[in-house]
Design a protein around this nucleic acid. Structure first.
Length: 174
DNA sequence: GACAGATGAAGGA
DNA sequence: TCCTTCATCTGTC
């Protein structure tokens, strides 16, 4: 695992933590620590803070912040920073790329995502790829529902999934 | 190589 | 409807 720089992203919903490598955004952690990737990284001390940040990174962080605010408000992100998926499998990346095509209020089932990437039977694997998504919210794995329109699961916790979908008008009582 | 998993579909109560 | 069971595919250890 490469070293990353972590920067806080202050939102009305709490302070997210963004991790950047030299290639782009590597990971995004929920405020409540619901993202298991975050706790692991922090424990292992694989991240570090640096006083002087490269200019591109500051630009990415600003883009990330704006995108996060937009998504949390139920709007589409105008732009996303470069996403660093190095080390991830081709299958996972294809699933995440498909998720990036989904706009606010636009949901798909795990089966539909599987079919969209040309592997209609790999529905369970799509669930696994969603769970392995290090950049939730920006890579909208919360917009993937089970076939029966149930929530399914969410790495950041089902509460977040309900909240995000509620903001986008997908779920009532959210 | 074995096992687990954020599923989906089918069958039965 | 709801629940249970099984098939399927991929990632991880």
């Amino acid at each position: 695992m490469k070293n990353t720089i972590q920067l806080p992203v202050v939102t009305p919903k709490g302070v997210f933590l963004a991790h950047y490598s030299e290639q782009g955004l590597v990971e995004l952690n929920f405020p409540d620590g619901g993202n298991h990737h975050a706790s692991r990284l922090t424990r292992e001390g694989e991240t570090q803070r640096r006083p002087a940040l490269p200019a591109p990174m500051l630009q990415w962080h600003q883009t990330t912040t704006e995108a996060l605010h937009a998504v949390l408000a139920g709007r589409a992100a105008k732009a996303l920073p470069p996403l660093d998926w190095t080390g991830k499998t081709e299958f996972q990346q294809s699933v995440w790329r498909e998720l990036l095509k989904l706009g606010p209020g636009n949901t798909r089932s795990y089966g539909e995502i599987a079919a969209a990437i040309g592997r209609p039977k790999a529905v369970r694997a799509v669930g696994g790829a969603c769970g392995a998504n290090p950049i939730p919210v920006l890579v909208p794995c919360h917009r993937v529902l089970a076939a029966n329109k149930k929530l399914g699961g969410f790495s950041g916790g089902l509460g977040w999934k309900r909240r995000l979908l509620g903001r986008e008008g997908v779920m009532r009582n959210a």
